[in-house]
């Protein structure tokens, strides 16, 4: 068995310095992904730098009515905090519909955004997989790809991103705050997730040793009536086949503002911009919703077993928009 080093740090600067100085080290937060992948042999760090003692657990309103969530706030705490349930219900729902209570108590928000895919070929540590071992090929392209992505895919990778909260965050234009060896920066969440393209092993623009310290969710008038719908093989404790975060504001029958993001169908939490553009300024009718949803899925590239996701995502979007328009829930 390979030896594994462990160190616990108490400040952001020492955490960043520790990981930044050692290419074989990585951060340990809740561990729900990292410990799992170490045991599977998929992740092979030599040293874990435990950041759980860092003071990054706040959940608070910002001055303008948005949210600031510390990277180490636990999913369960964020899901149930009044700030989130009241002003950003889709975020609360996405967290409560993700994982189990035990995992939600463990998993950090920063870690949640950085979850690795559940693609079985990535996780088995032996199949060809460009995400795990660049250049080896993608076993999912012609393999068992029922759970895989239809949007944002490449010939190198069709793995979905598993985060539910990431979908709500993408809908709300969240900003990821980081501190790294080169200093602090803020990354719009849509840029925080990279499409697989020719390098599916690179999922984020973070440099080695760059740590997420917080997530900011800007205020949005429609967010208070937002919702998150999730469709899956089981009623609970399962990853999404299709999920939708939706918020819509209608004035005099016309769409004034709309936020739509999809989970389970994209290689990253998928902001449905094509649908948003099609809807904005137009009538808020079931037909308009259906047309916009179809427009969003036009670029889809389904494979042998996941073609069902194309109509399923469209119907899910229509349902989510209809419910959001009627006051949520």
């Amino acid at each position: 068995m390979r030896p594994l080093g462990y160190t616990r740090v108490s400040t952001v600067d020492t955490a960043v310095a520790a990981v930044g100085a050692d290419a074989t080290s990585t951060f340990l937060a809740g561990g729900t992904t990292e410990v799992d992948l170490i045991r599977l042999g998929v992740s092979r760090p030599d040293v874990l730098v435990d950041i759980n003692s860092l003071p990054l657990k706040e959940i608070a309103y910002t001055n303008d009515g948005g949210l600031r969530i510390g990277a180490l706030a636990r999913m369960s705490d964020v899901a149930r905090s009044p700030e989130v349930t009241y002003n950003f219900p889709a975020l609360s729902q996405s967290l409560l519909l993700g994982a189990s209570e035990q995992l939600r108590n463990m998993a950090s928000m920063g870690g949640n955004l950085c979850q690795r895919t559940r693609c079985a070929y990535f996780r088995d540590a032996v199949s060809p997989c460009n995400k795990r071992e660049p250049g080896t090929g993608c076993s999912a392209l012609d393999g068992l790809n029922r759970g895989h992505a239809v949007l944002g895919t490449s010939e190198q990778c069709i793995a979905t991103h598993p985060s539910d909260a990431g979908v709500a965050m993408v809908a709300f234009d969240a900003i990821v705050h980081t501190v790294g060896p080169s200093g602090a920066r803020s990354i719009p969440i849509d840029d925080f997730y990279l499409l697989p393209g020719a390098s599916p092993d690179v999922e984020h623009p973070l440099e080695h040793g760059e740590l997420i310290v917080g997530i900011e969710v800007p205020p949005a008038p429609s967010a208070r009536r937002s919702l998150y719908l999730k469709f899956r093989d089981r009623q609970s404790y399962e990853f999404a086949l299709v999920s939708v975060a939706a918020a819509i504001e209608v004035r005099e029958g016309r769409v004034a503002d709309v936020r739509l993001a999809l989970g389970g169908v994209g290689t990253k939490p998928w902001r449905a911009r094509r649908a948003e553009v099609a809807l904005t300024g137009g009538p808020a009718t079931p037909q308009a919703f259906a047309n916009a949803a179809a427009h969003e899925l036009e670029p889809a590239s389904p494979r042998r077993y996941n073609a069902f996701k194309v109509p399923m995502a469209q119907r899910a979007m229509v349902r989510a928009l209809t419910r959001a328009m009627n006051g949520g829930a």
């Binding site: 462990y6 340990l28 561990g31 729900t32 410990v35 799992d36 874990l48 209570e101 035990q102 995992l103 108590n105 463990m106």
Partner: peptide, 8 residues
């Protein structure tokens, strides 16, 4: 409640 198997 947490999972002891995924906790170091």
């Amino acid at each position: 409640p947490v999972l002891a198997c995924l906790t170091l």
